[in-house]
Amino acid sequence: MASDGVVVEIGKVTGSVGTTVEIPVYFRGVPSKGIANCDFVFRYDPNVLEIIGIDPGDIIVDPNPTKSFDTAIYPDRKIIVFLFAEDSGTGAYAITKDGVFAKIRATVKSSAPGYITFDEVGGFADNDLVEQKVSFIDGGVNVGNATPTKGATPTNTATPTK
């Protein structure tokens, strides 16, 4: 695992066909100046998982989280898009600690492993708008004895992609 920078880890949970599971997305290594904004994309298989919603985690402190935390689910493109932009203008609602960034709610549709993997990152910046190093650890849903650990090695991303 990367020793510096922010680590975004997609949790690994267990479920069975027809059940709804909650998959946490963790941030670790949050910089001392916090995270003022970030955007990134995960990939998944809508034939295996139906993403039914995404909720902000406990490290989102904006009293009205829909102003700073936004997501979009595109089953036709097989992606989930995340956007966080601190909304106070003063840094008061920045992410300042490690913990759960988001909770992905999904219904298991198939007995195949439900991988959720890193696809791309736009950027991560602290309260001074300084770009942060970030790496990703894939996860998803274990169905029966299947284990979604494909790509469990962190993917280092030093520069934003478009």
Rank of each mutant, 00 (worst) to 15 (best):
D138I: 05
T161F: 12
T147D: 14
Q132S: 05
S16K: 11
A146S: 09
F69V: 04
T20W: 07
P113Q: 04
V7S: 10
K97T: 09
T20D: 03
P65A: 11
V134W: 00
K109H: 09
D39F: 01
D4R: 08
D39S: 01
D55C: 13
I116N: 15
V17E: 14
I137H: 12
A158D: 08
R105T: 10
T71F: 02
I104K: 01
D138H: 10
A36L: 07
I137Q: 13
T19R: 06
S88H: 07
C38Y: 01
T149D: 09
G99R: 13
F42Y: 02
Y93N: 10
T71Q: 02
G18I: 14
E50R: 07
V134Y: 02
F69A: 06
E9N: 07
P154Q: 11
E50C: 04
V7A: 10
K33M: 04
P31I: 15
A94F: 01
D45R: 05
E120I: 02
V61S: 12
E86M: 01
S110D: 11
S16V: 07
I116S: 09
V6R: 08
T66I: 13
E131N: 07
P154G: 11
I73W: 04
Y74E: 00
F84M: 11
V121F: 01
V6P: 06
P113D: 12
F82Q: 07
P160S: 12
L129P: 01
P24I: 05
G18M: 08
Y26P: 09
K12V: 04
I79Y: 13
M1V: 13
I95R: 02
P46R: 08
G123K: 00
D58G: 06
N37E: 01
I10L: 07
I54H: 03
P154V: 12
I35W: 01
D76G: 01
T155A: 13
D128Y: 08
D4F: 14
G140P: 13
Y26F: 06
T147W: 07
G122N: 00
I59N: 08
Y26S: 12
G11T: 08
S111F: 11
T161E: 15
P56W: 03
D126W: 00
S111Y: 03
T155S: 12
S3H: 05
V6Q: 14
V7W: 14
P160N: 13
P148I: 03
R105A: 13
P31Q: 09
I60A: 15
A36E: 01
D55F: 14
R43L: 09
R43A: 09
K67G: 13
P160Q: 11
A146R: 12
D39W: 01
T157M: 09
G53E: 12
S111D: 09
G29R: 11
N37R: 01
I73Q: 08
N142G: 08
I10H: 09
K12M: 14
D70H: 02
P46T: 06
S111K: 15
G18K: 07
F118T: 05
V21E: 14
P154K: 12
N156F: 13
R105K: 12
I51Y: 13
Y44D: 05
P31A: 04
T14K: 12
D55R: 08
T117V: 08
I80G: 07
T117M: 13
N127P: 01
I79S: 01
V100W: 04
D87H: 15
S16C: 04
T155H: 10
K133D: 03
G114V: 13
V8E: 06
D4H: 04
S88R: 07
N37T: 00
T71L: 05
D87W: 15
R43P: 03
A152K: 07
P113W: 04
E131C: 01
T71C: 04
S88C: 06
Q132A: 10
A106Y: 13
E9W: 14
N127S: 02
S16F: 11
G11Q: 05
A158K: 07
E50M: 05
D55P: 10
P56M: 02
T157E: 13
L49S: 02
A112G: 04
T149C: 11
G89N: 01
N145P: 12
P148Q: 03
G139I: 02
G29F: 15
D45K: 13
R77V: 04
A106Q: 05
V100R: 11
T117A: 04
K103C: 15
P113E: 11
V30N: 15
G53I: 09
I116F: 04
A146N: 13
S32R: 09
N156A: 12
N127V: 02
I95N: 09
D126Q: 02
D98F: 10
V130I: 10
